[in-house]
Structure formats: C-alpha cells, structure tokens
C-alpha cells in the first residue's frame, strides 16, 4: 500500500519488542491497529498488511514467528479460505485460521445449532442454540480477529450454488458430514481449480488428505462414489470433541502449507489414526 502518511503513522506507532529467544522485531499493538483503521478509514486487514509490508509485525501474530516470517504472515492475510461446514471441524478450523491470520474466510453452512452439537462444535453454546451456525461463527471470529474479513452463506453447498461460493478462493476446507456434500464440494473445486483439504471423523478415528483438482480425490477413500453410503462409521461411533479438534488442527496445518506454497502436504497420501491404540498411519493413495 503506497501511503506515505500511513507508513509514517505505522512507524510512529510501532514499538521495539523481543521474542522469548531475545531476538528483536517492530511490534504493532491491536489498539494501534484499531486507531489507524479508524483514522485512515481502512480495514484492519489493510492496516496490518501495510505494517507487514514495511517490516512491522502486528503483535497479535508475534507467537507465529518465526515459524512464519513477515512475508508468510502477509500472504496469509491476503489469502481466502472457504470453510464448508461450520460444525465440529468447521468451527475449530475457522477459529484457528482466524487466529493464525488468514485474512479472508468464507463460511458455508445452512444449519442451525442444536443441543447435540454442544459436545464438540466450537460456536455451539447455550445462547446460540437455534441460531444459524454461520452467524454465531461470524460474531465470534470478528471478536477474535477483526482483520479477518468474513463472508457467510447460510445455505448448504451444492453443485448448483457451489461454484460461485468457492470461486476465487485459494483453498477449500472440507468440514462436512456427508459424502454427498463432500462430493459436491470436490466437483465445484475441480471446476474452479481450487485445492481442498478433506477430513472425516468417526468416534476416536479420523482421516485427512489434501486433494488437488486433477487428483483421484474422494474416490480413493470411499470407492465408487455413486454406490457409497452417505454416512459412515460415525453413525454408530459418534463424533468426539478431541478427535474433531485434532483433525481440525491438522486440516489447518495442511491448509497453511498449501496457502504458503510449502511442500510435503498430504497430497496423494491419507493420514489415518485411531486413538484407541494411538496408531497413526500414513497411506500412499496412488499404488506405486
């Protein structure tokens, strides 16, 4: 952003700070971001990106360093993740991506919170029962990180509406709970050439992979999609909160790698775990 006045104000607002390891950086407080956004009539996202561009780190991201560098942080702030399903997986994914600083989140879910969501879904609270999931999520995320620009769809993604929902996103994150919905997401991601992270839970087991448009995708996990059941072992085993949160965290880790162009994602491989005996298996999906 070429605004010498803003750059000067950012430089003036920044403070010298040190990481726990003693290395120094220029830090910008959340209060300063609030104040500058108001003064320059810019979004929090724009203020933070302007700071990062001149080497000033918003303090809210201080503990992302140095696993992320300033350029990574700036790239995340400019990235768009489409979170499809805002229940167990999606709620935790949305919060985690907001905290790490992914700047644009699209939240897609047509459901309202109900009592049976309370065991695991991040934004299900007594006060949000009956509320659209995307509305509760939007309010909470805005309160956590105002630099995140949120767009919501209070409808379920289908092949009919999905292309316009995912268009232009850098990544889609499958946080769905039926195979038919996952299939619809994969279809629209292929049409729009968008990579997706996909995860599914049953009881204390879970699976996770990364799918690019040209990959075999979900068929490698579920066999012939036309004849596969819409729901799996979770019908019997349920969805436990620690399994859901573990998988949501792993989805975020993969999503950040994809967004930052890092290698060694789960593409072409499937992580399967079973917490009964703490087994984690990495499966090569394409037979070599």
């Amino acid at each position: 952003m070429e605004n010498p006045d803003l750059s000067a104000q950012l430089a003036q607002a920044a403070r010298d700070a040190r990481r726990p390891d003693g290395t120094g950086y220029r830090s910008l407080s959340s209060a300063s971001v609030d104040r500058l956004a108001l003064r320059f009539d810019l979004s929090h996202n724009q203020i933070e990106q302007a700071g990062l561009a001149i080497g000033i780190l918003p303090e809210r991201y201080a503990r992302n360093m140095t696993s992320l560098n300033l350029q990574d942080q700036q790239r995340l702030l400019g990235s768009t993740a489409c979170i499809v399903g805002v229940g167990g997986l999606g709620g935790s994914v949305a919060e985690t991506l907001a905290r790490i600083g992914v700047g644009h989140l699209r939240l897609v879910d047509g459901d309202h919170f109900e009592d049976s969501n309370l065991n695991r879904q991040r934004f299900a609270r007594a006060a949000t029962i009956g509320k659209p999931k995307v509305d509760a999520a939007r309010e909470s995320i805005a309160a956590i990180n105002p630099a995140v620009e949120i767009t919501t769809w209070a409808e379920n993604l289908s092949t009919a509406n999905g292309e316009s929902i995912v268009a232009g996103a850098d990544i889609a994150i499958d946080c769905l709970d039926t195979l038919s919905a996952r299939q619809a997401l994969q279809t629209v991601c292929r049409r729009r050439a968008i990579p997706m992270v996909s995860a599914a839970v049953a009881g204390v087991s879970g699976q996770l992979t990364v799918i690019y448009p040209e990959d075999e995708g979900l068929a490698a996990l579920y066999g012939d999609l036309a004849s596969a059941p819409d729901r799996g072992a979770e019908k019997t085993l349920g969805n436990l909160p620690f399994t859901v949160n573990l998988l949501a965290s792993l989805e975020c880790s993969e999503a950040v790698k994809v967004l930052l162009g890092r290698r060694e994602t789960l593409r072409g491989r499937l992580l399967i775990f079973d917490l009964t005996d703490l087994s984690f298996d990495m499966i090569q999906l394409a037979a070599s």
């Binding site: 997986l89 946080c175 996952r182 599914a200 729901r231 799996g232 979770e234 969805n239």
Partner: peptide
Amino acid sequence: LGIFPPVGGG
C-alpha cells in the same frame, strides 16, 4: 494389512 470403513463425520 489395514482395513478402514467409510467415515464421514464432522
């Protein structure tokens, strides 16, 4: 040999 059933929860 490992066998995993379809899982789909979220």
